[in-house]
Amino acid sequence: MTTQLVTNKGKEKCDPSFAKEVMDKSHAHLERCYQCVACSSGCPSAYQMDYPPHQLLRMVQLGLKDRVLNSNTFWICLSCETCATRCPNNVEIVLVMDQLREMALKENRKDSTHLPLFHNTFLSMVKFGGKTYELGLIMFYMVKSGDLFKIKELPSLIKLGINMFTRGKLAILPPHIKGQANIKRIFELSEKTG
Protein backbone atom coordinates (compact mmCIF):
# COMPACT_ATOMS: atom_id res chain seq x y z
CA MET A 1 0.00 0.00 0.00
CA THR A 2 1.55 3.23 -1.09
CA THR A 3 0.76 6.77 -0.17
CA GLN A 4 0.66 9.00 -3.19
CA LEU A 5 1.51 12.60 -3.62
CA VAL A 6 -0.67 14.37 -6.15
CA THR A 7 1.13 17.23 -7.88
CA ASN A 8 0.68 19.25 -11.02
CA LYS A 9 3.29 16.99 -12.64
CA GLY A 10 1.26 13.88 -11.90
CA LYS A 11 1.33 11.39 -9.09
CA GLU A 12 4.38 10.49 -7.06
CA LYS A 13 4.66 7.37 -4.98
CA CYS A 14 5.83 7.61 -1.41
CA ASP A 15 8.22 4.86 -0.41
CA PRO A 16 8.46 4.54 3.39
CA SER A 17 11.36 2.10 3.04
CA PHE A 18 13.43 4.94 1.57
CA ALA A 19 12.93 6.99 4.73
CA LYS A 20 13.91 4.00 6.81
CA GLU A 21 17.02 3.36 4.70
CA VAL A 22 18.17 6.97 5.02
CA MET A 23 17.57 6.92 8.77
CA ASP A 24 19.30 3.57 9.30
CA LYS A 25 22.34 4.46 7.24
CA SER A 26 22.78 8.04 8.40
CA HIS A 27 21.95 7.33 12.06
CA ALA A 28 20.07 10.65 12.08
CA HIS A 29 16.77 10.88 13.99
CA LEU A 30 14.79 12.24 11.07
CA GLU A 31 11.47 11.14 12.53
CA ARG A 32 11.86 13.71 15.30
CA CYS A 33 11.64 16.67 12.90
CA TYR A 34 8.56 18.79 13.59
CA GLN A 35 9.23 21.30 10.85
CA CYS A 36 10.16 24.40 12.82
CA VAL A 37 12.30 25.51 9.83
CA ALA A 38 15.25 26.54 12.03
CA CYS A 39 17.59 24.66 9.66
CA SER A 40 16.50 26.47 6.51
CA SER A 41 16.33 29.83 8.25
CA GLY A 42 20.01 29.59 9.26
CA CYS A 43 21.36 27.88 6.16
CA PRO A 44 23.83 30.17 4.31
CA SER A 45 23.28 28.43 0.98
CA ALA A 46 19.58 27.60 1.14
CA TYR A 47 18.84 30.31 -1.43
CA GLN A 48 20.68 28.24 -4.05
CA MET A 49 18.85 25.00 -3.27
CA ASP A 50 15.81 23.79 -5.13
CA TYR A 51 14.39 22.54 -1.81
CA PRO A 52 15.52 24.13 1.46
CA PRO A 53 16.74 21.62 4.08
CA HIS A 54 13.45 21.38 6.03
CA GLN A 55 11.51 20.49 2.89
CA LEU A 56 14.11 17.95 1.89
CA LEU A 57 13.76 16.33 5.33
CA ARG A 58 9.98 16.30 4.94
CA MET A 59 10.36 14.65 1.54
CA VAL A 60 12.65 12.02 3.02
CA GLN A 61 10.13 11.44 5.84
CA LEU A 62 7.41 10.85 3.28
CA GLY A 63 9.69 8.69 1.12
CA LEU A 64 9.68 10.76 -2.08
CA LYS A 65 12.83 9.01 -3.27
CA ASP A 66 13.08 10.38 -6.81
CA ARG A 67 12.41 13.95 -5.85
CA VAL A 68 14.96 13.79 -3.05
CA LEU A 69 17.77 12.15 -5.00
CA ASN A 70 17.29 14.40 -8.04
CA SER A 71 17.41 17.57 -5.97
CA ASN A 72 20.55 19.70 -5.75
CA THR A 73 20.11 20.48 -2.04
CA PHE A 74 22.66 18.05 -0.66
CA TRP A 75 25.16 18.96 -3.39
CA ILE A 76 24.92 22.65 -2.58
CA CYS A 77 25.08 21.99 1.19
CA LEU A 78 28.42 23.25 2.56
CA SER A 79 28.33 20.91 5.59
CA CYS A 80 28.83 23.96 7.78
CA GLU A 81 26.54 22.34 10.40
CA THR A 82 24.65 25.51 11.23
CA CYS A 83 21.40 23.54 10.77
CA ALA A 84 22.39 20.68 13.05
CA THR A 85 23.74 23.07 15.69
CA ARG A 86 20.47 24.97 15.80
CA CYS A 87 18.07 22.01 15.40
CA PRO A 88 15.86 21.82 18.54
CA ASN A 89 15.46 18.08 18.03
CA ASN A 90 19.13 17.30 17.48
CA VAL A 91 18.51 15.96 14.00
CA GLU A 92 21.94 15.44 12.44
CA ILE A 93 21.03 17.01 9.10
CA VAL A 94 24.62 16.96 7.87
CA LEU A 95 24.69 13.18 8.20
CA VAL A 96 21.51 13.02 6.14
CA MET A 97 23.05 15.21 3.42
CA ASP A 98 26.16 13.00 3.31
CA GLN A 99 24.04 9.90 3.06
CA LEU A 100 21.97 11.37 0.25
CA ARG A 101 25.13 12.31 -1.72
CA GLU A 102 26.33 8.77 -1.46
CA MET A 103 23.00 7.32 -2.50
CA ALA A 104 22.73 9.70 -5.44
CA LEU A 105 26.22 8.79 -6.63
CA LYS A 106 25.56 5.09 -6.30
CA GLU A 107 22.42 5.42 -8.37
CA ASN A 108 24.18 7.59 -10.96
CA ARG A 109 21.61 10.35 -10.63
CA LYS A 110 22.11 13.09 -13.19
CA ASP A 111 22.38 16.57 -11.82
CA SER A 112 22.14 19.72 -13.90
CA THR A 113 24.64 21.60 -11.74
CA HIS A 114 27.67 19.29 -12.34
CA LEU A 115 28.04 19.33 -8.57
CA PRO A 116 28.55 15.56 -8.31
CA LEU A 117 31.26 15.95 -10.96
CA PHE A 118 32.96 18.63 -8.90
CA HIS A 119 32.59 16.43 -5.84
CA ASN A 120 34.21 13.46 -7.59
CA THR A 121 36.99 15.51 -9.18
CA PHE A 122 37.80 17.03 -5.81
CA LEU A 123 38.02 13.60 -4.21
CA SER A 124 40.21 12.22 -7.00
CA MET A 125 42.60 15.14 -6.44
CA VAL A 126 42.78 14.31 -2.73
CA LYS A 127 43.28 10.65 -3.53
CA PHE A 128 46.04 11.56 -5.93
CA GLY A 129 48.02 14.08 -3.91
CA GLY A 130 46.84 13.70 -0.33
CA LYS A 131 45.34 17.15 -0.35
CA THR A 132 43.58 19.42 -2.77
CA TYR A 133 45.36 20.57 -5.96
CA GLU A 134 43.45 23.64 -7.13
CA LEU A 135 44.91 24.00 -10.61
CA GLY A 136 44.37 20.33 -11.42
CA LEU A 137 40.89 20.46 -9.95
CA ILE A 138 39.92 23.43 -12.11
CA MET A 139 41.43 21.97 -15.25
CA PHE A 140 39.86 18.55 -14.89
CA TYR A 141 36.53 19.92 -13.81
CA MET A 142 36.35 22.43 -16.64
CA VAL A 143 37.29 19.89 -19.26
CA LYS A 144 34.90 17.25 -17.98
CA SER A 145 31.99 19.60 -17.47
CA GLY A 146 32.58 21.40 -20.74
CA ASP A 147 32.87 24.75 -19.01
CA LEU A 148 36.24 25.25 -20.74
CA PHE A 149 34.45 25.77 -24.01
CA LYS A 150 32.18 28.53 -22.74
CA ILE A 151 34.37 31.12 -24.46
CA LYS A 152 32.52 34.12 -23.06
CA GLU A 153 33.24 33.29 -19.44
CA LEU A 154 36.85 32.32 -20.05
CA PRO A 155 38.52 35.76 -19.75
CA SER A 156 36.97 36.42 -16.33
CA LEU A 157 38.03 32.99 -15.12
CA ILE A 158 41.61 33.53 -16.35
CA LYS A 159 41.66 36.87 -14.54
CA LEU A 160 40.49 35.19 -11.33
CA GLY A 161 43.19 32.52 -11.79
CA ILE A 162 45.92 35.15 -12.17
CA ASN A 163 44.68 36.98 -9.09
CA MET A 164 44.74 33.78 -7.05
CA PHE A 165 48.20 32.93 -8.38
CA THR A 166 49.70 36.30 -7.47
CA ARG A 167 48.32 35.90 -3.94
CA GLY A 168 49.88 32.48 -3.61
CA LYS A 169 46.56 30.62 -3.65
CA LEU A 170 47.23 28.58 -6.77
CA ALA A 171 50.21 26.21 -6.84
CA ILE A 172 51.57 25.19 -10.24
CA LEU A 173 52.78 21.73 -9.20
CA PRO A 174 50.61 19.12 -7.51
CA PRO A 175 51.23 18.73 -3.75
CA HIS A 176 52.86 15.74 -2.24
CA ILE A 177 52.35 14.83 1.40
CA LYS A 178 54.20 12.42 3.68
CA GLY A 179 51.26 10.21 4.62
CA GLN A 180 50.35 9.37 1.05
CA ALA A 181 50.09 5.69 1.86
CA ASN A 182 47.67 6.40 4.72
CA ILE A 183 45.43 8.49 2.48
CA LYS A 184 45.35 5.63 0.03
CA ARG A 185 44.29 3.29 2.82
CA ILE A 186 41.52 5.63 3.90
CA PHE A 187 40.13 5.65 0.38
CA GLU A 188 40.40 1.91 0.06
CA LEU A 189 38.68 1.35 3.38
CA SER A 190 35.81 3.71 2.70
CA GLU A 191 35.28 2.25 -0.77
CA LYS A 192 35.14 -1.21 0.74
CA THR A 193 32.62 -0.29 3.46
CA GLY A 194 30.52 1.88 1.14
Partner: peptide
Protein backbone atom coordinates in the same frame (compact mmCIF):
# COMPACT_ATOMS: atom_id res chain seq x y z
CA UNK B 1 -7.07 13.04 0.66
CA UNK B 2 -5.46 16.08 2.19
CA UNK B 3 -2.69 18.53 1.62
CA UNK B 4 0.68 18.12 3.22
CA UNK B 5 0.93 21.83 3.85
CA UNK B 6 4.59 21.56 4.82
CA UNK B 7 5.36 20.41 1.31
CA UNK B 8 2.57 22.21 -0.50
CA UNK B 9 1.35 19.05 -2.23
CA UNK B 10 -1.86 17.11 -2.11
CA UNK B 11 -1.45 13.64 -0.74
CA UNK B 12 -3.56 10.46 -0.97
CA UNK B 13 -3.17 8.14 2.00
CA UNK B 14 -4.83 4.72 1.74
Amino acid sequence: VCEDSLLGSMIRVP
